[in-house]
Amino acid sequence: MEDKLVIKGIEFESRLWVGTGKYKDFTETAKVIETSGADVVTVAVRRVNITDRKIENLLDYIDPKKYKILPNTAGCYTVEDALRYSRLAREAGVSDMIKLEVIGDERTLFPDVIGLLKATEILAKEGFIVFPYTNDDPIMAKRLEDAGAVAVMPLGAPIGSGLGIRNLYNIKIILEAAKVPVIVDAGVGTASDATIAMELGCDAVLINTAIAGAKDPIAMAEAMKHAVIAGRLAYKAGRIPKKLYATASSPIEGML
């Protein structure tokens, strides 16, 4: 039975999406991506180093024909910057997909949702396939959806914090109301966090730091792969209700 995530006609092979930041080198990055089974890979847009041309290109290691390259606007603090980076990303890349970030504050890296909403509206009108990184606010998720976002990407916790899914109930409310896929972005610290997000019914999870920062990133990539699959299967299987008291699993009948 197929259980593929499809967004705007694009089929996604895996529900684990990975970032490419903070790795030792491109060889490690490539190995992690391969091990994780992810087919969506996020990248940032930056200046080419014009003085040292020996610097290698990430896309020599991650084949854009094999993986879906999802550029982000990481580091953008204003709507104008986010639009600028998005338009450059579209030109540098091969698709209209953009992971839209409008950051509100350097210390928390929480999104500036007012700017995010404006940028989503503009980019959606320009034909971009917008994946906005938002906070775990159900009302804002709805607003972004109305503004033309093809999915919403609420944070589980601050970027790189590894605190896990801090507000399960908000994520649940977002999921109940959303007509677009919900992809948890940021906050996952270890495999069980990814499983929890998927058990809630999230459509995918995006992970960078939890893998890149692990002692053994390649082993963690494998753990995350299984965690996401397990969480998704458990969600589809339907968990038992929680009860305060025991219910015997073995029959009483036939006892001495």
Partner: peptide, 18 residues
């Protein structure tokens, strides 16, 4: 003129920010 490309992201590397 600005010439940009894709790098591992999102590290917040402000030096290479346009």
């Amino acid at each position: 003129v600005e010439i940009v490309y894709f790098v591992g992201g999102g590290i917040l590397d402000f030096k290479s920010q346009i």
